[in-house]
Structure formats: structure tokens, C-alpha cells
């Protein structure tokens, strides 16, 4: 899932300075799961903003809604009938959702409430870790299912480097050495020969910016 965290309250509050009526829009997908931008977080942020404005003697009407997701137009359309009632929109989606909402309603100021961090997994309740950099050239088949691009501090495709130390990274004793993890996993799988494979320089050319993918079934046929 995409993992994000909420921006500091003061930063969000400063974005809507001068607004009298705002709509806080949550997203029911990844950011709900990582407790950053789902229905509950929408309620908390809207309540905080109302109270903070009231504390300063200002008026603020904060509407709340949470869409199934903000990365699909069909769900973004759900707010088309009432968005004109608001001075601005605060999106609690990841960066993709914020941009898609801003693109669809380009006459309306749309502000992000979250900092999008990474593609990751839930280690345990309330804790997530990065697993994928979306590099468009996956090497997990050769590395025992452990990504050197995301897990190695240097993103080395041919590791370990000289900084590996008892299974930890030279950058921090808290940080596992990705290539020690890979070695141990390959050993367990009986595929240690994979460690001898030398990867050429990463194919950054496949990382088109901005990335775009069209499903085969939707490509125009000749």
C-alpha cells in the first residue's frame, strides 16, 4: 500500500488561511489503512480546524466526506454537486489522489493534508515499512524476494558493499543490511548461486516520468 503521514497541523491550517468554508476529503484506500487519511482522520482534522479557528475568534465551516478512493474519476465525481459550496478542498489522499482531485476540479484550490512516504507493508499495528520503489524493473526473482533497491541504503544491485557489519548497515545499527538478508534468504532457498549474478547498471530508461501504463486490452489495435 501507499504509506503517508499527516502534515503538521499548523501547516494545514496556514494553507486555508482566509477560507470560510472548506471541504475535507478522505480516501478509503491505502491512507485509511495506514491511519493517515481515512474517515476517522477526516473527522479529527475537520474538528481540529473548527476548534482552532473558533479559538482564534474566526469562523470556519468544515464539511467532511470520504470517497472510496481518490485515484478514480468515478469516485471523485461524487463531490461534483457540492464542491462549489466550498472555498477550498483539503485532500487527505496520497499525492496521486490530491493531484487527480485538483485536476478534475481545477477551478478550486486543493490542498494536501498528507506527506506521501512510500510503498510499503504493515509490520504490525501502527507500524509500516518500505518495500518497493516502483522502479519498473523488478529483480526480486533473483534476490530471494528482498528488494535491494528499496531496502539497501545505497540501492546497490550488486552487494553487499564494504559497509555491511554483522548483518547491519554502516549507516545505522538499527538498519538491516539488505544484502545480508538476501544472502541468507537465497541460502534458505538453496539458490546461493544467484549471489554471483552480476546485474548491469539499472535500466532507469524504463522509469518514464511521469509513469504511464495502458493495459493490453485497452490498447488500440492496429
Amino acid at each position: 500500500m501507499i504509506v503517508a503521514e499527516r502534515k503538521p497541523f499548523e501547516e494545514i491550517k496556514a494553507m486555508i488561511e482566509g477560507c470560510k468554508k472548506i471541504l475535507v476529503v478522505g480516501c478509503g484506500e491505502c491512507v485509511s489503512v495506514c491511519m493517515a487519511g481515512g474517515e476517522k482522520e477526516v473527522q479529527i482534522l475537520a474538528s481540529q480546524l473548527r476548534l482552532a479557528f473558533e479559538e482564534e475568534g474566526k469562523e470556519l465551516e468544515a464539511g467532511e466526506t470520504t470517497l472510496v478512493r481518490q485515484c478514480d474519476k468515478e469516485y471523485l465525481e461524487k463531490i461534483k454537486d457540492n464542491i462549489d459550496d466550498y472555498d477550498a478542498v483539503i485532500s487527505m489522499a496520497c499525492g496521486a489522489g490530491v493531484q487527480f482531485l485538483a485536476e478534475m476540479y481545477d477551478q478550486k484550490p486543493v490542498y494536501p493534508a498528507l506527506n506521501t512516504q512510500f510503498i510499503g507493508v504493515a509490520e504490525r499495528e501502527g507500524e509500516w515499512s518500505e518495500r518497493c520503489r516502483a522502479c519498473s524493473d523488478c529483480v526480486l526473482a533473483y534476490t530471494g524476494g528482498i528488494c535491494p533497491v528499496a531496502i539497501c541504503a545505497k540501492g546497490l544491485l550488486n552487494g553487499p558493499c564494504g559497509g555491511t557489519n554483522d548483518g547491519k548497515c554502516e549507516l545505522s545499527k538499527e538498519k538491516d543490511c539488505a544484502w545480508t538478508l538476501i544472502y541468507n534468504r537465497l541460502d534458505k532457498l538453496g539458490k546461493l548461486d544467484n549471489i554471483r549474478k552480476i546485474f548491469p547498471a539499472k535500466k532507469y530508461s524504463v522509469q518514464t516520468t511521469p509513469g504511464r501504463r495502458i493495459h493490453e486490452a485497452f490498447k488500440e489495435k492496429e
Partner: peptide, 9 residues
């Protein structure tokens, strides 16, 4: 922490 952010003790 949420209360502190909005200036409530």
C-alpha cells in the same frame, strides 16, 4: 497531542 496542536491544554 491533537488538543495541544490546536491550543487546548
Amino acid at each position: 497531542g491533537l488538543l495541544k496542536e490546536i491550543g487546548i491544554e
